[in-house]
Computed example of a mutant assay.
Amino acid sequence: MLVEAKAMTADYWHEIADRIAATIGATAESHDCEGRFVADNYGLLREAGLIGAAVPVDLGGNGMDYRTLCGVVRRLGKGCGSTALAFSMHCHQVAVAAWRWQHMQAPTDGLLKRIASENLVLVSSGGSDWLQGSGTATKVDGGFRINARKIFSSGCQAGDLLMTSAVYDDPDAGPTVLHFALPLDADGVTILDTWNTMGMRGTGSHDVELKDVFLADAAVSGRRPQGQWHMLFHIISMIAFPLVYSAYLGVAEAARDAALEAARRKASTGGMIALVGEMQNSFWIAETALDAMIAEAEAGGPGPAKTSSVMTGRTVTGRAAIRTAELAMEVAGGAAFYKGSTIERAFRDVQGARYHPLQEPAQRELSGRLALRLDIDG
């Protein structure tokens, strides 16, 4: 049930997130150890009204503002990185749809109303598709037949709609990426049990196979040239990545806090104090870079320069979050090396920050091209 408008403050939502984080933190180790999807945690998110909280009030949601949403994801990440990361994939799809409706009058209101009224969970395949897209769309009477295998589909076991794409070899326009939503219970859609990883083991980021899935012409929500930057992806870059990296900052924060607790039980030698100071420096860099990313998203104005700035923040935040967890291992000492340690799990979970687009070499190329006033499409 949605909360009353009078309760819609950042403090209110952050308090809810902190309570949920305490609960899911108690089961994070077992989900990690067993590689088991955090299904029960999604139940908590639904009960708290978080699934549709960022939907605009006019469309039935609570109108949670963007910065507050990032704060919710960060707080969840302190308790369970897997829950926060999987949830961030839903959150950014909602936030992008809301931004497009509010600023571009895009026809996303139907989807947003359904999210608010039905508690629909969205699953993204964008990180693995990115500009190229993947899979094939073959024209048939009344629509297309979709064949694809979508990797890194975080939260798919709790999902209702897969927000994805496929490539259509348009006889006039050439290779064209079609964007669409597919019900995860549609004929031909199969979740494959493929997620067995070093970290973020509870995200359930399995492959989703699409085999001869029918897509009606009317269900195609967008078309764009394959492999080229498009305004849609500047919007996604601006909005999605501060949310995703909020999860990683939460993971790094949990490692930092656990390391400080361990350090306070030890003798405060000069070496230990300096090591803690270095850890604090790394966490400050991560926190400051993420705050800059959030501010960029709040300011709007999607485009190449905005994308470059946010993606630079993505690189810096990710590096610093990983370094924070590394230093937490050193501060805490040998106890952090054992399975079951919050820091050991955080160290593995935070490594996932390396793998979201734009990965660092691609980010550097984009930023370099813009600085040299070169075509960003190469």
Rank of each mutant, 00 (worst) to 15 (best):
H14K: 15
G204W: 02
L210F: 05
S246Y: 00
L192I: 10
K113N: 12
G277S: 04
Q102V: 06
S153C: 14
C91S: 14
S237D: 15
F87L: 02
L192Y: 00
I322C: 03
T203S: 06
G81Q: 02
A325L: 11
E344G: 08
A297I: 07
V38K: 06
M293V: 00
I191Q: 01
V350Y: 03
L85G: 02
Y168K: 05
S205Q: 06
A286C: 08
Y338G: 12
R319L: 11
L69M: 15
K339D: 13
T9K: 05
R345D: 02
T312L: 08
D170N: 10
I151L: 09
A258C: 11
V331T: 06
R201W: 05
D207G: 00
D18T: 12
G135H: 03
A247S: 14
L370T: 04
K150S: 05
E278D: 12
V316F: 03
I151W: 04
A353G: 01
Q351F: 09
G63C: 11
G227Q: 07
L374T: 08
A286P: 02
K78C: 15
D212W: 06
D185T: 13
L76V: 11
H179Y: 13
G77K: 00
S134A: 10
H90E: 06
W101N: 07
T164H: 10
A255N: 00
H179I: 12
Y248H: 10
N119Q: 15
H179N: 14
G127K: 04
L76R: 05
R348P: 03
K139N: 12
G126L: 14
A5L: 15
D129K: 02
G204P: 04
V251I: 15
Q226V: 14
E360P: 04
E296N: 11
Q102I: 05
R314Q: 08
R264L: 12
Y66R: 09
T307C: 10
D170C: 08
G110I: 10
E4I: 13
G270Q: 11
P225C: 10
G159K: 11
I273H: 06
I294E: 03
K150A: 05
H92T: 05
E326S: 11
A218M: 07
L44Y: 09
F347L: 05
Y168S: 00
V251S: 00
A335M: 14
C156W: 07
S308A: 15
L374C: 12
G135V: 02
V167N: 04
